[in-house]
Design a binder for these strands. Structure first.
Length: 449
RNA sequence: GGAUAGGUGGCAGAGCGGUUGAAUGCACCGGUCUUGAAAACCGGCGAUCCUUCGCGGGAUCCGUGGGUUCGAAUCCCACCCUAUCCGCCA
């Protein structure tokens, strides 16, 4: 198989990263607590080949020790040559001796770097370890409901789904979007377009004014290193849209603001008093949805392009677990203010994303589907992303330590619009506007056909 | 797209091919002085990996990769990135 230039660069980048950071999981943990790590990964349905790793490690130690011995000898002898020449004495005997080291040293160095790349390939495929509080299970059926909020409304008429509600209003148009772009795109018009904008504004304002987040705007096109930092690459390239650059490189369209916002601290060494960082960011998100051809084809639940208001936090390890609860409550606050019934679940070990140590999903009630659907996902990745990104802070003991990074939707704007249309629809085809949004709609109380 | 300049420790900024992991300043930590603080003075202060129970010892890292050399931050080549100016453009 021919390798694309981007992939080649990625492999080079990974090899380079490995030498600097040695892993995505903590390599020390892997070396010293192998059984524990294996057990933890097993909970995620991930079988860790312990003996394969130990063999590689054994080989690495031998090779590294031998290489370093040779390097030490070469350095010492070369230093002697410098001293002899400085005194104007003859150094040819020493030069002959050091010359003999060259071949073996070069062979050792090459073998070592090849081996390091193999070990990296092994470690890079490992997902984050689940937090101890995460319930064990193989798939979504083992997720655990934490709470239900609100009561689904009783309808005294036949409920329509958001596609029909939007059609009756004449403000939601999939056909024209399909003509322009293809499947999984949407056009909204008039009051509905404004309602969509109002939702995003309302979320931003709430998180800034009431929850203390700093609003940021960021690039929507990012480089491969950023995708690697947050964990989308190298494993999940097929989920992304790529844009080629004239120089042969590529940009990726962000699948979530988590990528650019979290990468703001990549390669940074932060002062302890700079933490926590709390950012809120409204962006479009682009996803290829390559693995979900048959799912949610109707309506605007699953799109190639949607908008999201994202919360990102950079925390110290001591505080990150409290911060996750807090962040999730901030996302919940939006649903509560909009009076949309939802439930909160904690994902089991088998259903979590690659980078996450623990994830809460918020699911909003959709009456037409008679079920709850995901509208937010809030995760603590611990030091997993920070280790990939080299994002550190100087702890009170003066030691450099990896930060913990968290992110969560607060909320997905498109799906929130769906939820409002379905939950606030009325028998005559109109849709009343949630109280909290009316100030953002110039006081408008209802959208009428 | 064209033309320059530059990428060195948390930051700024030195660095004739040879005891340079790197001067100096700032920041930071400890101490002296002070009623306290500031100032001044003294001392300390990079990361990662290997080895050791520990003390310690060793290796690698000056944008990235490669080359020359007994020896490279320093010389050569390629690439990446940043800044500035010109052109074009929302």
């Amino acid at each position: 198989m021919r390798m694309l230039p981007g992939q080649l660069r990625m492999r080079v980048l990974i090899a380079f990263r490995f030498l600097r950071t040695l892993s995505m999981l903590d390599i020390q943990l892997l070396r010293n607590q192998m059984p524990l790590v294996a057990e933890s990964l097993a909970k995620r349905g991930m079988r860790l080949d312990v003996s394969a790793f130990e063999t590689l490690e054994e080989e690495r130690k031998q090779l590294q020790t031998r290489t370093q011995e040779l390097q030490a000898r070469r350095n010492a002898l070369s230093k002697q040559i410098g001293m002899l020449k400085g005194k104007g004495e003859d150094a040819s005997a020493v030069m002959a001796e050091v010359g003999g080291i060259g071949d073996e040293l070069k062979a050792n160095e090459q073998a070592l770097s090849a081996l390091l790349e193999r070990i990296n390939g092994f470690v890079a495929a490992l997902p984050n370890l689940p937090h101890e509080s995460v319930p064990e299970g193989a798939d979504e059926s083992a997720n655990v409901e934490v709470l239900k909020w609100g009561t689904p409304r009783e309808f005294d008429f036949e409920v329509n789904d958001h596609v029909d509600v939007g059609a009756r209003l004449g403000l939601l148009d999939f056909e024209t979007a399909a003509k322009i772009s293809g499947a999984r795109f949407t056009i909204t018009r008039g009051g509905l377009a404004r309602l969509h904008r109002a939702l995003a504004q309302f979320m931003l304002d709430t998180h800034v004014r009431e929850h203390g987040y700093t609003e940021v705007t960021v690039p929507f096109l990012v480089n491969p290193a950023s995708m690697y930092g947050t964990g989308q690459l190298p494993k999940f390239e097929e989920d992304l849209f790529a844009v080629p650059k004239a120089d042969g490189g590529r940009f990726y369209l962000i699948p979530t603001a988590e990528v650019p916002v979290t990468n703001m601290v990549r390669d940074e060494l932060l002062a302890a008093d700079a933490l926590p960082l709390k950012f809120v960011c409204h962006t479009p998100c682009f996803r290829s949805e390559a693995g979900s051809y048959g799912r949610d084809t109707r309506g605007m639940i699953r799109q190639h392009q949607f908008e999201k208001v994202e919360l990102v936090r950079v925390e110290t390890p001591e505080r990150s677990w409290d911060a996750l609860e807090e962040l999730c409550s901030h996302a919940e606050a939006i649903l509560q203010k909009l009076d949309l019934p939802y439930r909160k679940i904690v994902l089991c070990t088998g259903d979590m994303g690659f980078s996450a140590a623990k994830t809460y999903d918020l699911e909003v009630w959709l009456p037409a589907q008679n079920t709850y659907r995901e509208i937010s996902s809030c995760s603590n990745t611990g030091a997993f992303q920070a280790r990939r990104m080299q994002a550190r802070f100087k702890n009170p003991q003066g030691k450099n330590e990896f930060v913990h990074t968290l992110n969560g939707s607060g909320l997905a704007v498109g799906r929130t619009l769906v939820a409002v249309l379905e939950n606030y629809q009325q028998a005559d085809g109109s849709v009343s506007i949630p109280k909290a949004l009316q100030p953002y709609m110039g006081g408008l109380e209802v959208l009428v056909p």
